[in-house]
Each structure stands twice: as structure tokens, then as C-alpha cells.
Amino acid sequence: MAEPIPSLELVERVIAGERRAIARMLSRAEAGLAEAREALDHLYRRAGRAHVVGITGVPGSGKSTLVAKLAAAVLDTGRKIGVIAIDPSSPFSGGSILGDRIRMGEIAGHPSVFVRSMATRGALGGLARGTLEAVDVLDAAGYDMIFIETVGVGQDEVDVVRAAHTTVVVSAPGLGDDIQAIKAGILEIADVHAVSKGDKPEADKAVSELQSMLALVLPAAGFKRAVPVIKTSSPRNEGIAELLAAIDEHREYLATSGLYEVRRQSIRERRMLKAAQQVLHDEFERHREGRMAGVIAELAAGSISPQTAARRLLAHIGIEVKR
């Protein structure tokens, strides 16, 4: 048995773009290994160049197919493209079947493309635990654009918005009416809307409905920028270049409006809070049978409320909450 390569030794190889090293580092980022923490911090400091694009939409909307087409279009512009495709873990076994790769086809083997599948492992919000560390790894390895393809979401699981520079929402014609969109807030999260399956006759109606909904909702929500709606057809390769142009245009808009730095800072803060939640969660799991057992017993007996128990949990790791 060979000993595993220490993560710190992988850092330079990742930066040099070595595929096996990148792949290994992604596994460690995903597992959240303590051993990899310092190496991931190094890579985080090297990252920050890539344009991170979240692609979300309801299951069956054609996200994976569209991502594959878009990735090919990015490649045509001479850029390196990383894709992180997320699928759900089984809540019963913790295992998963990750099928997003099926749609990628032959492009996934191109030297300037890196595609990685990740399972949610119980994380909500459309992303997986470790997704953003994985983005750092690909960013540091020199990928110019990174797509995060979320699990099929659509009602309120929109973490990707707080993780990406540009969010694309994919809608398909014939999946639910416009009321679904108003309820969900899915209208407001998009920087660019894509209507997939544009070869279907209902697609034009879906585009115009979406445009009229946006005209109603966005000004009221204080949006200053018009959000484009792009009709795409993956099998006919239509609208793909236009969609990429809209994504690039949004990146330009962020830069010229000064919003890029604002968005980056909000992503950093969000990540900090997420990481803190994860630490707390892990601490609790580690001590639930031991030092936290008393609090849990009181909770079970009904002698304290979950609110009070939560404050004891925090006190346990040295955080005094007065309120």
C-alpha cells in the first residue's frame, strides 16, 4: 500500500494544471479533510481570477445538456472551462448516482476542460458541501470560467446565487405556469434567463411570459439592469453563443458598475458563515454522545427548549450569547 500524497505537496501540481493532482485535491476538498485545510487555503489565495457561473433550474429543464453545449462554446473562445455538476445524495444510504456527465459527451476529455461530479451529502440549497472549495481548486489550476450546475431546484433553494458571480436560471417550456415563478423568487435570482428546448412550439410563449413577468417584478424589486431572456435549443445548437455572450456581458457589467467587488465580498462572507455552521455541526456530532449528552438528555426530557439548548451548545464551544 502506498501512502497518500500529503495535500501540501499537491498544491504546486494543482497550480501547474496537472489533472490527477487537481482530481485528488477536489476529492479532499469535497471530503472537508482537516489534512487538506492548509493546502486549500494556499489554493484559495491563488484563486480569484475565474468567472464563476451558477446554472440552476428545475429538474428536467435541460441544465446538463445546456451546460455541455455552453462549455463547448467557451472552449471555442480559447478559454479553459471547469464544470462542477451536482446531483443529490440518497437520504437513505448517503450514496449517490451522479449522471450529469452523461450529457457532457466527448468534450469532457478535451485538455482545456475539467468536469467533476459532486453529491449533495445532505446539503440543501442546490450546492454540495465543499463545492466552493472545489471552485477554488479549479480557479487556482487556471480554469478561466467555472460552471456550477446545481441539483434541480426551483422553489427556494438558491444558495448558488450567493456563491457565483453570474447566475443563469434555466426554464423549460411547459413546466408549470408563471405563478410558480412569482412564488419562487426564481425570477429575481437570475442575472440571465435561459429558456431551453427552444425547438418546441411552446418556447416562444414561455419567453414572452417570462419577459412580461420580469417587466412587472424587477423594477418593483429595485433592479436597474434589464435581465436578458435567451431562447436556446441544445440539439439544434441555437442560442448557445447568444447565451454565452449574455453571461460575458454580465461579467462586464459587474466590472464596470463596481458590483464585482461587492459580489465577491458577499460571497466571502457567505462562505465564512457556511463554514462556521459546518464547524458547529461537526462539533455537535463529535460530542453528542459525550460532553453534549447532558444537554440532549434535558432536551429529550422537555426540561429545556431547543432555543436554550442551542445557546448551551454555543457556550460549550466558548460563545456566550446574551440574547
Partner: peptide, 21 residues
């Protein structure tokens, strides 16, 4: 975690996928 490639892959595609994953 099981990654399924779909049908009709080439050996190159499968090996590239195994490395990236």
C-alpha cells in the same frame, strides 16, 4: 458515490472521466 457515463463511450472518454472524477 456512483458516476454513470451513459452508453456508447470510447475507452478514452471513460479513462478521462475516471481520472477527472
Amino acid at each position: 458515490d456512483v458516476i454513470y457515463t451513459g452508453l456508447h463511450r470510447t475507452p478514452e472518454e471513460v479513462v478521462d472521466a475516471a481520472v477527472q472524477e
